[in-house]
Design a binder for these strands. Structure first.
Lengths: 274, 274
DNA sequence: CTAATAGTGTCTATTAGACAGTATGTT
DNA sequence: AACATACTGTCTAATAGACACTATTAG
């Protein structure tokens, strides 16, 4: 045993040299999800809801020209959560947004520059709050997912480009909703971001069913039809009206207002009950 | 714009200097949970199950002499998962153990030496596989938790020392099972490990109810009474027999063997059905 | 009137909670 | 016989799925 254990903690810290360690960096990558209205062909049909994800075109090496999740380095004096908030603010000019840590990705070769671990966060944004002050290089992509027992295919489209990713799903420990993903096909996404997206989609699909995170993507008042559409587009399946209304019954309350003008019976407006 | 965007990716990478960044390290901390038998006062009573957690006494600065989770630095050429596996092997001599990533902790001041982020993992071990080859400084602590709406108290006892931690629970976003924890009282645990333990307990309490992770803490054959005790000690509440048996019915199968000698009706032995 | 969505009533099937009962070993 | 656990039957309450029905408006 060296004499080090006999010195005081403050002496020990004085001698400690952080620069002597292998260089490693920490980043956060953000999955910013939102829901927006599509087009209506018919004046009386409701606009279709689109599930969307914010991507950024890389303007520097590595992966120059490819799309990736907004992200950046964690600075020395901020927590990882603070870094995520700062980066979201920088990319979208938004603050006070729902955010949760998703997973930390740390394969040694996930970034060609150096050893970089990345803590992924998921943010949920009401599109109405997106005041057009997006970063130039950022763009919203509509998301379409198709899932089977052992596959997950994701198609992303921003109106100009269409990106597609295919992943293999493996059930972990014989359990519902606990999967490991592997990328089978990915042309257009940088780093391991296809994986991050898959994990995020998995998380939101599960969590929307037993928490009230969905309201973070809704404006302050909404109809139950709109809310149901949001669930349907995220879960990628139709829901039955009475069952859906029972499910969300005690998380919403009527505002007393109605939305008219749709060529059909007016719908009551609701807000999230806290 | 600099001319950098016109150089090739390989030229860019050649010029890239990892040493120019602020020094930061990455560690993993392991929550190693297990279940073991307590004592029996009465020959015909079943031994009480104890939920237990592996802690290590710190033999160097910082937090010299305090207890902490087993952990260590992530090395440059291994993934974070690989680091967790390596550290578990080093502390317990066990491999091929169930492990899942829990959460990444990264407050700038969580370690007094330097900026260190830590990725916490949860490992579940069948105590019968623990072949006494524990690290000298490591010790199993029996865990007792008491939870109320806004509090979580944890008492850990290894027969010689008793550590106690009190935390405040805050419900996140009006949702069941999604909490933020803050440490109110903690004398004996190093770093922010009281927080890590709270997050881990929360995770296992939830996940045991909708996955089959519990079997990772069971020996290859067991009685349903033992299995039920494991659920009861982790959830910290009594369960009704018929409901419990219905719940786990399709995750187990009979081995055909029976356990006799208990002063009561023999119990059928089961195994985990995959 | 018609197309379209809004919203409700109700029947049924499934699941969860509770309790009481029977079974069978050891001392 | 007594005790302790093993295991099952069944009643009831709550929840989820399915379908059919009524309501209301713009054009």
């Amino acid at each position: 045993m060296s004499r080090r254990q006999f010195e005081s903690e403050s002496e020990f810290l004085r001698r400690y040299d952080p620069k002597s360690f292998d260089p490693l960096s920490l980043t956060t990558d953000l999955l910013v999800f939102s829901v927006s209205d599509g087009e209506t062909e018919n004046y009386r049909k409701l606009p279709e809801k689109k599930f969307s994800l914010l991507l950024v075109k890389r303007s520097s090496h590595p992966f120059f020209g490819k799309w990736c999740l907004p992200g950046g380095f964690v600075e020395l004096r901020e927590s990882i959560d603070e870094a995520a908030v700062r980066i979201l603010k920088h990319e979208t000019n938004l603050s006070d947004i729902y955010m949760e840590q998703l997973y930390t990705f740390g394969s040694p070769d996930r970034d060609p520059r150096m050893r970089i671990a990345s803590v992924a966060y998921m943010a949920l944004v009401d599109k109405d709050r997106l005041n057009d002050r997006l970063d130039d290089r950022a763009s919203w992509f509509h998301l379409k997912t198709r899932e089977s027992e052992d596959r997950m295919d994701v198609v992303m489209d921003n109106g100009e480009e269409s990106l597609s990713v295919r992943l293999k799903k493996t059930l972990c420990h014989h359990t519902v909703n606990s999967y490991k993903f592997e990328v089978i096909e990915n042309e257009s996404l940088a780093f391991d971001h296809a994986l991050v997206i898959a994990e995020g989609l998995n998380r939101i699909k599960n969590k929307i069913q037993y928490t009230d995170i969905a309201f973070n993507m809704m404006p302050s008042s909404f109809t139950l039809g709109e809310l149901q559409q949001v669930f349907e587009v995220i879960l990628a399946k139709k829901l039955l009206d009475p069952a859906f209304r029972r499910m969300i019954a005690d998380t919403v309350e009527k505002t007393g207002e109605f939305r008219t003008g749709g060529g059909h019976r007016p719908s009551a407006l609701y807000r999230h009950k806290k």
